[in-house]
Amino acid sequence: MSSPEFLHPIGRLLLRVTATLAGVGVTLFGLLLVTFVIARVVPVDPVLAVVGDNAGPDLYDRTRVELGLDRPLYVQFGLYVSQVARGDFGMSVLTSRPVTEDIARYFPATLELATAATLIGVLLGVPMGVLAAVRQGHWIDHLVRVIGLAGYSIPVFWLGLMGLLLFYAELGWVAGPGRLSIGYEDIVEPVTGLLLLDAALAREWEVFGNAVSHLVLPAGVLGVFSLAYIGRMTRSFMLDQLRQEYIITARVKGVSEARIVWRHALGNIMVPLVTVIALSYAHLLEGSVLTETVFAWPGLGSYITSSLLNVDMNAVLGGTLVVGVVFVGVNLLSDLLYRLFDPRAR
């Protein structure tokens, strides 16, 4: 599909962006439809969940009408969409707070964990991938391949348990499960919800140190998976670039090897690399469900699973929807970055 030629490049970009946004709108609508359908097939009676088992038929019928369950399905779906649009996911049975409030409380912990893991993945994965491509057959090359394979083969929750066994129980290098040790809790006033940031802002360096010690292991475990993906992709992108003719030209001109690799080749893969990093970030949300369970990390993932085990459907669907929206958002962002920085994609 080619855009009209008479448009200014920026105009063409805007046209594409509008089309992408429309696609995202349809996807979000689909997300809502899927969660709505899931909510309808649940064998739990939503009225009974509100009124309790001992309610009389009067109360039952009244609540049923109040919840809008006597209306046709499409009306119910409309009600559901308008509720969600207002940020109302209903009440959580488990915590007796609005689900929105719960999510706002738990989300920063997941954000902190996923960000730390991505940082590990990028800071180690990119240089390792570059070196693996430059020195094929070198031990770094083999290491990147082994980690790449391991990242697709090891269950994240098992790696977490083994990490706890080795680094917490045997070696004592890191703190155990949770975000803070007992005695460090409630010292720092939550401002952003990101514990490291809050502690640094409040200049509570002991709390900061304790939080880091709790964060290192779960972030490291998730980071292995981020590293696997980013390292593997960096390696293959770099191999592709190093075969190009401009590299030979640069060599002939006498450009130093370090400059060729780190400036020319790496500079050229930055755009696809950003997409890969964004994708791995979005996938960490998935890994965080299991990791948070293992490390008793009070984030969105453990919120969803604990709600699940208690058949707290409002909380499950609210959490699922938020994760879906974040996932779509991150993908959209990487897509826009790609279009913005790569003139060929405009």
Partner: peptide, 24 residues
């Protein structure tokens, strides 16, 4: 393809979790 995109828009594990929640 729109339907496919909707399913791809969820992380797989989370969507599977939601379905298991519904089905038991």
């Amino acid at each position: 393809m729109r339907v496919t995109d909707v399913f791809l828009a969820f992380p797989r594990l989370i969507l599977a979790l939601a379905f298991v929640a519904a089905l038991g």
